[in-house]
Design a protein around this nucleic acid. Structure first.
Length: 239
DNA sequence: ATGTTAAATGGAATGAGCCT
DNA sequence: AGGCTCATTCCATTTAACAT
C-alpha cells in the first residue's frame, strides 16, 4: 500500500519542506516536493556562492539569507564525501509574520537532519524512517496518511495512541512546526490537487473524497493554503 | 455548480503546574 | 527527560445566506 518512500515523500511534501540533492557539480540527483520557490533560490548564483563558502561546515550548515530565509545543507556523505548535498528549504527559523515560508523550529531542523542522514546511510530502508521523531508523531502522520479520506479527530488519534491530547498537540507542533489540524488540511489539499488534475469529479466530490465535509469549507481551506480556488487550480493544471 | 462571507460554537491549542 | 490534568484562549469548522 504505502511504501516507506511514499510516506517519507508525503511527509516532507505535507510539511512543505522541499528537498533536493545535488552532486559536486551542483547538478540535481534527487528531489522531493521541490517547487518553483526552491528552484528560484537554489539556482541563483548567490546560492551557489553560499554553498561553496560553507562546504566544509560539518555536520550540517544553515544557509541564512536576508529576511530570515534559511536552507539546511546536509552532506551526502555516503555517496560522495565532502561534495554532494541535500538542500532543504526554504524555511524560516524565527516565528514572525511571513506567511508563505514555513517556520521550522530548531528542534525540527535537527530531526530533519537526522532523518536525512538515515536516508543517506540506508536508502529508504524499512523500519528506520522517523526514528528521531516521537513515535506518537510518526504514528499520527501515518494514521493520517491512511485515513485522510475519513473523519479524523485529535481525540480519536489520542485514543488510538493512548496519549494525552494536550501533550499530543504540544509535541506535534514542536516537532513538525505545524499544528496537527494544519498538517492534516495541507495533506488533504495536496491529495485533492491530484484529483483535480487527474479526474473530472465535481468539487464537492473532490472535497468529500479527501475528507472535507463540505465543498464551501474545502474551497476556503484550499484558497488559504494555495492562494487559489480549487477551480482556478484545476483550470491551470488542465491546460 | 462554485465561491465568498458572517456568526456561532465546539474542538483544538496553549500554558502552568504537577508527577515519575 | 517524558508524561498527565486542568483552565483558558483560540480558531477551525459548521451553518446559512447570498453571489457568481
Amino acid at each position: 500500500m504505502h511504501t516507506i518512500a511514499n510516506i517519507l515523500e508525503d511527509f516532507f511534501y505535507c510539511l512543505q519542506l522541499p528537498i533536493k540533492a545535488i552532486d559536486e557539480n551542483y547538478n540535481l540527483i534527487y528531489s522531493v516536493g521541490v517547487n518553483e520557490q526552491l528552484e528560484d533560490f537554489t539556482s541563483s548564483d548567490l546560492f551557489i556562492e553560499k554553498i561553496k563558502g560553507l562546504k566544509e561546515n560539518y555536520p550540517f550548515s544553515i544557509i541564512d539569507f536576508e529576511d530570515n530565509i534559511n536552507f539546511l545543507l546536509v552532506p551526502i556523505s555516503k555517496f560522495d564525501k565532502n561534495k554532494g548535498f541535500f538542500i532543504v528549504g526554504p524555511f524560516r527559523s524565527v516565528d514572525n509574520t511571513y506567511i508563505n515560508i514555513h517556520y521550522l523550529p530548531n528542534t525540527c531542523i535537527k530531526y530533519v537532519y537526522n532523518l536525512l542522514t538515515t536516508i543517506n546511510d540506508d536508502k529508504f530502508s524499512k523500519g528506520r524512517i522517523n526514528h528521531q521523531f516521537s513515535p506518537y508523531v510518526k504514528k499520527a502522520v501515518e494514521y493520517s496518511i491512511k485515513n485522510f479520506d475519513s473523519p479524523i479527530s485529535i481525540d480519536s488519534i489520542c485514543n488510538e495512541l493512548n496519549i494525552n491530547k494536550s501533550y499530543f498537540c504540544k509535541i506535534f507542533k514542536s516537532e513538525t512546526g505545524y499544528t496537527f489540524t494544519n498538517f492534516l488540511n495541507i495533506f488533504r489539499v495536496e491529495k485533492s490537487k491530484k484529483l483535480l488534475k487527474n479526474s473530472n469529479l465535481s468539487l464537492l466530490d473532490v472535497a468529500v473524497s479527501v475528507g472535507f465535509n463540505s465543498q464551501n469549507y474545502y474551497s476556503s481551506v484550499f484558497k488559504k493554503i494555495t492562494n487559489k480556488t480549487p477551480l482556478e487550480y484545476k483550470q491551470e493544471v488542465k491546460l
